[in-house]
Design a binder for these strands. Sequence first.
DNA 1: CGGATATACATGCATTTGCATCTATCGCCG
DNA 2: CGGCGATAGATGCAAATGCATGTATATCCG
Lengths: 153, 153
Amino acid sequence: MADRPAESPVRLAAETWESLFRAQVAVMRRLQSGPAFKSIALNEYDVLFTLSRCPSGWLRLNELNDHILLSQSSLSRMVERLEKRGLVERMPAPDDGRGVLLKLTEAGSELQKQIGRIHVRDIEALMTPSLTAAEQRELLRLTEKLRGAVARH
Amino acid sequence: MADRPAESPVRLAAETWESLFRAQVAVMRRLQSGPAFKSIALNEYDVLFTLSRCPSGWLRLNELNDHILLSQSSLSRMVERLEKRGLVERMPAPDDGRGVLLKLTEAGSELQKQIGRIHVRDIEALMTPSLTAAEQRELLRLTEKLRGAVARH
DNA sequence: CGGATATACATGCATTTGCATCTATCGCCG
DNA sequence: CGGCGATAGATGCAAATGCATGTATATCCG
């Protein structure tokens, strides 16, 4: 793309992060503007999606919060709204009196699947023409590694 | 990381995007919580940063909007706030009566550099232990390619 | 040229967000 | 056991956000 001379670790790290960030912004913009997200915001879908992937069906609010880029209070209120819309169900955690467990309702699961199908196709339409399968696998590997390392304090 | 069987292109694309997205969230969380972003939000810093990288010094509002994950109206107001704080300067575009040009003020440039120094060190502290230099270069290449392909309609 | 359509940015308004703080429960340690 | 700091989540409130729309300018096309 550009001629890039030997760089300091600091500069390389900064450029890598910036590129990752901008790529995320570019893709996100496209996805958000698609028809899939008229009835529900992407953040909200993300909650439904995360819940759908949860083996037990139930997820703690604070665990959910780790996945979502929202403050604790904002997530609390967002879940409140989703509950009002009948998409998720709350229940006090049995083993922790402070905690709240979340689960998709039938309607929430339905909506997640419906949006999910479109969403996944939108993603594929963006990724496949942009990167080869091998490149995607490598990008997947690198971002998993990065996330793992960053998450692990 | 996990055993991953041969996957359909759709599934691969979806997993790659999800991983990219979650990695971005994980890194972003860490960066936002750092001490560098007490005086200014990350989005706001991003504006200052983008302006600082602009060769002519002046940038159109709509071009800026392409880089930032914000609606047009929100950006408009954010710039208004930055102007009130004395960090950026506005000027009507000479060649387009509808447009507005933006530039960092001296104070804005100062602040950008000051935050930037800390920010860049924070980034390095996250990236370098997570990925080798070669991996970072590859991640940089892949995200640039992705962004390029997505941006180009 | 002139009217129609598109683009750039601003603004009113309802919704969403985050910070600070509050309440309740948990876990630890004397 | 009992007190105390830590953690989970809720809430008041000011600020930020996005949608719809408004205004002005630009561009296209007959």
